[in-house]
Design a protein around this nucleic acid. Structure first.
Length: 278
DNA sequence: CCATATGTTACTCG
DNA sequence: ACGAGTAACATATG
């Protein structure tokens, strides 16, 4: 569920509340949420550690502990990190509870149980293969353009590939492709130089907008995104194609179509986003 | 019962 | 090796 803007929102919000606090106790209700190491080792190594920093890489949250370890987590589809007073009762899908020294709980809540924690000394063991941060200093058009030219893969699954660019998910990929006027099944190597340039900018634009709007919160169910204070973002109100099937394209007024590409629901305008063949 | 869901990975086939 | 397609993980909702 959370893509780059949602994870960024959570990290920014949590930073002021958890940095310099100590993790005084850990409760594990669902052991599979801990990918590594074994749960008893995990508890031993995290307990009584001070939190030095919290940062984001792609869709991962990285918490630097005072010992040599990093607590890395990925929320996958429905994972949430919720900070609340430790007097609040944990609820159904709260799988991990971190008691903090400031009388708060940091709860890992995950309806579908896909989210994972990794406690490692070397962050590269988890983050090493990720592509560039699209809002970072190392996202260069020259590299992006070259990599696009080297593959015939469909552009949508390519943008979803975290080794190509890190942080895009289903929502922001559809949004970026509409913004750039590119068909989701467009073979990457057949993109014109101009389209590559427009796409490069569109990726950054839709992600920045998502962050400015504190993320996209779809639907009302339990698994939908909220930030760490349980509040919703507002980006869903400004989506151009995602979840807008049959509604008019904001550019040409024709109905937005929904198809399946690489097993993912894909929203686009068949008039504004044409396939280009060489 | 069936399809779908903001993510990722392993596997198959051509 | 590459790329497309499929299933799997686990739960909820329409």
């Amino acid at each position: 569920m959370p893509e780059l803007p949602e994870v960024e929102t959570i990290v920014r919000d949590l930073r002021s509340d958890i940095v310099n606090e100590k993790i005084t106790d850990i409760i594990i209700n669902y052991e599979k949420s801990i990918a590594t190491p074994a749960p008893n080792q995990f508890i031993k190594l995290v307990e009584n550690q001070k939190i030095l920093a919290i940062t984001r890489r792609a869709k991962y949250i990285v918490i630097d502990l005072a010992n040599p370890y990093y607590l890395i987590m990925h929320m996958r589809m429905t994972g949430k990190l919720i900070l609340q007073p430790d007097t609040t009762q944990p609820t159904k899908h709260d799988h991990i509870v971190f008691q903090l020294s400031n009388a708060n709980h940091l709860l890992f809540n995950d309806t579908r149980k896909f989210g994972r924690f990794y406690l490692v000394k070397n962050t590269a063991s988890i983050l090493g293969k990720l592509g560039p941060e699209p809002l970072g200093d190392n996202f260069y058009f020259e590299d992006f353009s070259k990599k696009l030219s080297k593959t015939s893969r469909q552009i949508k699954p390519l943008l979803l590939d975290q080794q190509f660019v890190a942080g895009l998910g289903n929502i922001y990929t559809d949004e970026a492709l509409w913004e750039a006027g590119i068909h989701p099944k467009q073979p990457a190597n057949l993109l014109s130089p101009n389209k590559k340039k427009v796409l490069f900018s569109a990726i950054k634009q839709v992600l920045r907008k998502g962050i400015d709007n504190r993320g996209t919160s779809l639907g009302n169910g339990d698994g939908n995104y909220t930030s760490s204070d349980n509040s919703r973002g507002t980006n869903q109100k400004q989506l151009t194609v995602f979840a807008r099937n049959n509604q008019p394209c904001l550019n040409c007024n024709r109905p937005i179509k929904k198809i399946v590409v690489a097993q993912r629901g894909t929203h686009y305008c068949s008039n504004c986003q044409r396939l280009r063949k060489k």
